[in-house]
Design a protein around this nucleic acid. Structure first.
Lengths: 338, 338
DNA sequence: CTGAAAGCGCTTACAG
DNA sequence: CTGAAAGCGCTTACAG
């Protein structure tokens, strides 16, 4: 059932029906009512393609889903992010297109969707410093919002990684720790730089020097955490606490600490980041940071929609607060099971 | 740059350019070459909307993303599934639309996308018995493939839940366990019914009776596992092994077993399902089942694409083998850290 | 082998 | 307040 069908039934022109559908005024009350009834009766819904072709708008947003096909590494926050973003887009009448491709062809795929007009704007939750795709998008001035990474050239939404780690480190310092290691995620992520800043700032606030031998970077994996921490634990003066860049890294740290027959948190205290579903069920349960992923996703969609509408975005960047979840591994609080 | 631009430059009609773009024959070799060069030179790409409007095909697949907004419960397999499905769709030139909405409006949203012609087919990874959306889709005879659930009315791809649990239970029986509990997922999922079947079949194969007091159903959450297992551990004759319906349920079982001061696997052996990233880092590491999610996703896309093309699907259903990952919690094998 | 023309289902100035 | 008409960028019988 097309707009022409409705027009014929209502004995008006398709243009008039279009005006009613798009809630434009300039249509007599009687006519409008008649048309509305017919639309409801026949369950008419405008064809997206015809609308798109006529208006140039796709009513679709894209999200670049960061899967590294070769590694099958998926950051644990994505399911929640996708849910929130999908909801927010749907509520605004936009569909959400998942732009996931094996690394390498990623840029082409996204750029093709963009230039073929299939999406009106794009959400980028996996940008790192030096990202080529972002460069291309910035060049074209295509509506884009980055999530979880900060780049001055574009709009972004992020959480306060620095504050969270500052706070976490301070708690460890308050518990008496003097040698605190940082087993961080990849350095090309602004989030990891920020976390390092928080760590450094906390140590400095207590006049403690940051020692390079107690700092490491690597991918967000348990293996990476294990490999980074193991040598530190063999130092003459080993760390008594570890701030890990993610829960998965922390899981690797737990293995490393166990392998040295040390207890957590008595011998080595430990914190993670992300609050994955199982973080609470590691042994000991993991003190970690809960990031407001859903809020970030919803906010990012709002911002993107403004950009798509051609509105000025102010503010263009947003930092949302995260929350520290104290459990057993840090030795700085009480445990809650569920 | 549109097809008309290219046509003008090549001094041919748009129709001829269209034939070249769509690799139809009936175009002179010289003309074809000239047009191809122009296309490459100007980076022409056909507009999706115009193509769609002319052909009626959306070149888009939808996937109903199972987020329960109220509960924020997301099954751990979805990131991997989305990645695989997105890749497969992209390779076939199809985009993947994420149809995620708060439960309740879900059906309307999906049906609207369908009737407005925005998607050509839909993947359903979250169907349960009595699913209204599936009913509606079946009624309309709309191309759909279900993943991880079996319903005779539609095409589906699933893994061999029954075999996996049969095998797992057999291993426990072989290790000498006589009283084995089943803390299963929701009963509306065919996957859980199948798992129960595997469990039952294994016990019966050894002439052991299935006792109702050792069986429970509930959501895929740690809390659910905790609540279901706790009373069983207080039975006069408590189970010496537990088959859990998911890793998260198993995590709750670990808590319950610990709360009774029992050791795993010495006092109570335990198995999970899914092999989530952290399953290997629970204490003890969890014996579990790895489901071939990526394969299932890719296969589902292939099947859906056949349906979309109007081809007959044979076979219409497919069962892929899963793999048992033996770790410490079951006491039936050796441990591997990474 | 190639072109002219109609059509896909909308929207939107432009008239009246 | 309403209609007729052109246009969005393709595709596809139909001629030639």
């Amino acid at each position: 059932v097309t707009i022409t069908d409705i027009a014929r039934l209502a004995k008006v022109s398709p243009g008039t029906v279009s005006r009613v559908v798009n809630e434009q005024d300039g249509v007599g009350a009687g006519t409008r009512e008649r048309i509305l009834r017919l639309i409801a009766e026949h369950g008419y819904q405008a064809s997206f393609f015809a609308q798109n072709l006529a208006t140039g708008s796709a009513f679709a947003l894209g999200i670049v889903f960061p899967i590294l096909a070769s590694e099958l590494v998926i950051h644990p926050v994505f399911p929640e992010l996708l849910g929130a973003v999908g909801d927010a887009a749907g509520e605004a009448g936009y569909s959400l297109s998942l732009l996931s491709v094996p690394a390498g062809t990623r840029d082409d795929r996204v750029l093709s969707e963009v230039s073929r007009g299939r999406i009106d704007g794009v959400l980028l939750p996996d940008v790192r410093r030096g990202d080529r795709l972002l460069d291309a998008l910035v060049d074209r001035d295509f509506p884009a919002v980055v999530v979880g990474h900060r780049d001055e050239r574009v709009a972004w939404v992020d959480s306060d990684h620095d504050e969270a780690v500052f706070e976490l480190t301070l708690q460890l310092l308050d518990a008496g720790h003097q040698r605190i290691a940082l087993v961080n995620g990849p350095d090309e992520l602004s989030a990891c730089t920020l976390r390092r800043n928080g760590y450094t700032r906390a140590l400095e606030s207590r006049g403690i020097e940051c020692e390079p031998e107690l700092q490491a970077n690597g991918p967000f994996s348990a293996e990476s955490g294990f490999k980074a921490l193991s040598p530190m634990l063999q130092l003459a003066h080993r760390p008594s606490a570890v701030v890990a860049g993610s829960d998965l890294i922390a899981a690797g740290c737990i293995e490393a600490i166990r392998a040295r027959q040390l207890r957590i948190p008595e011998d080595v205290a430990l914190t993670g980041f992300d609050d994955q579903p199982l973080a609470n069920h590691l042994n000991p349960s993991l003190t970690t940071v809960r990031v407001p992923i859903s809020d970030m996703g919803r906010t990012a969609v709002q911002m993107l929609l403004q950009l798509v509408a051609g509105e000025a975005l102010r503010p263009r960047t947003l930092v949302l607060p995260s929350e520290i979840v104290v459990r057993d591994s840090s030795g700085t609080g009480e445990r809650v099971i569920f």
